[in-house]
């Protein structure tokens, strides 16, 4: 089944696509999670991906990173095809895709508990250039997340939930990616802390890059993203422009 889907008019003239997904189907083992998804993100855009638990937001991100059990369909990152059909080997192509300019913050605390904050951030600086400049880049991350500055030598596993999330997001900011996929930055955090994490994400400049934030708490994103996209039962069910919820 193919669903007629017209991208909404958000910014004109339309910038080139950073991410262009068409006909993406993905799942794990016998379970089919995504059904023929078409989805585009243009340069300079901030897109909110909303939907209930278990409706495919995380799987969509994982499919872009080739971390699903199996998948098929075209995924273009900056006009380079990174999709294709794959039946085994989750994660095998992920590091190559990351090096093509995709930065993803996985859901929850998918982090390295035994590294210090400094080492953890350095892990994100995988390119030669970023590794050389890792000091400046760490500084930049700490300007975005000031609480991390005094915790540089603390083990990540000993930090609080909010601080861990900052480290996890900060790790993704250590290189200049063109596409940032942030999965549920507010998950499990106190409202005040999650607001500050989201605040920091929106303070990043958007020139030459795009950001997709998956979130259940629509109120956190309202009025601040360029588009909001709803997911339901593994399909994209709505694509609206600037939304303000009060």
């Amino acid at each position: 089944m193919t669903r007629a889907f017209t991208p909404p008019i958000s910014k004109s003239p339309r910038m080139p696509d950073v991410l262009a997904i068409s006909g993406l189907t993905a799942g794990y083992g016998p379970l089919r999670v995504l059904h023929e998804i078409d989805f585009r993100v243009a340069e300079g855009e901030r897109v909110g991906l909303v939907g209930l638990n278990g409706h495919g937001k995380t799987t969509l991100f994982r499919a872009v990173a080739h971390m699903t059990g199996w998948q098929s369909g075209s995924i273009k990152l900056n006009d380079t095809e990174i999709g294709g059909t794959r039946s085994t080997g989750p994660g095998r192509r992920t590091s190559a895709i990351v090096r093509k300019g995709m930065a993803m913050t996985p859901q929850g605390d998918a982090i390295f508990p035994g590294l210090t904050v400094r080492q953890h951030l350095d892990c994100g600086a995988y390119s030669k250039l970023a590794w050389r400049e890792r000091r400046q880049r760490r500084d930049m991350v700490m300007d975005i997340f000031p609480p991390l500055r005094s915790l540089q030598d603390a083990l990540v596993g000993k930090l609080s939930g909010g601080e861990r999330r900052m480290v996890s997001v900060g790790r993704a900011l250590m290189v200049d990616a063109s596409l940032y996929l942030i999965d549920e930055p507010s998950l499990g955090l106190a409202p005040k802390i999650s607001a500050s994490v989201i605040e920091a994400l929106f303070s990043l400049p958007t020139d030459g890059r795009a950001m997709v934030i998956a979130e259940q708490n629509v109120a956190l994103l309202s009025g601040r993203v360029d588009r909001m996209i709803g997911m339901h039962a593994g399909r994209i069910r709505g694509d609206v422009g600037h939304v303000g919820l009060e």
Binding site: A65, M67, G91, T94, S95, V98, R99, M104, P106, A110, I111, F112, P113, G114, L115, C123, G124, Y126, S127, R171, A172, V175
Partner: peptide, 11 residues
């Protein structure tokens, strides 16, 4: 410590 996080860090 975290193979999944490692590949996401380009390792």
């Amino acid at each position: 410590q975290n193979p999944e996080g490692a590949v996401l860090s380009g390792i």
